[in-house]
Amino acid sequence: MAMTLATRKRLVTALLVGPSAAWLSIFLVLPFIAILVFSVGERAPEGGYQAAFTFAQFMNLPARATAFWNTMLLAPVGAILCLLVAYPTAYYLAIRAPTRFRMLLVSLVVVPFWTSLLVRTYAWIFILGARGLPNLLALIGLPDVRLLNTPGAVLLGIVYGYLPLMIMPIYVSLEKLDRRLLEASADLGASPVRSFFNITLPLSLPGVATGVALVTILLLGEYLIPQLLGGGKVFFIGNALVDLFLQSRNWPYGSAIAVTLVSVVVLIITLAMRLAWRFAGTRQVDLV
């Protein structure tokens, strides 16, 4: 039977989107609905969940305000630090690195992923711990420097762990930058520095936005790094959730926190997208 063009297009779309839509609805949407339902419920006496309809859990949120603010502060700050370290690296890889070595260098960026983040973060415990760097600092006359279990240590771990995720999207957007635009900019009298701020940076903003959004969102749910490098002090929401679900088994309270977190994340994504589009406009670059 002959299919109209429109039907065919719809079929192709269904085939392309179908698998991920099915996966997401089963493994993401359903659990999320469960969490939503939990969040307005009550904690069963023996722990877990019992049906109810109350916003009491949300009223309780301030009790975990420290974790919330730690996350809200350290996640974006971590992402920005990541960005500051990642951008020059991505720029070098995409624009300056000799073409012959480019692929090799880019693959080196992802090499750390070959080892578990857990193991690598553990390594930092030893480096930052009393018998690591502080020990060396003491030798040169700086005793009693505390590195481990500070916000600084958490930030360091964050930048260390998430750098590749920030480098990649920026690298991609810089890599497809049309070099001839830089020639045009120079032709019109812009020095290399000005060409960078006028042309390169604006055109790489979509990559920057993707990287910052990606890293920030992942950091909002981060658990491992604050647990290992922040000790008991720098608690993230992720740590709070683990505590509530696994230790005190207060599922409704945990769910309320999770729902709040997801709402904030959605808000951030929307804003970030808006900003990226505003700055970069449509991304059509191919002329002629």
């Binding site: 900019s185 032709d187 812009a190 406009g281």
Partner: peptide
Amino acid sequence: AYRRPVNMVFQHYALFPHLDVENNVAY
């Protein structure tokens, strides 16, 4: 290039996609 008193109309135009016409010309 940026120090040369020369301007070029490129065979492939090389217009700045993120700027409007006015800002391209004013560049």
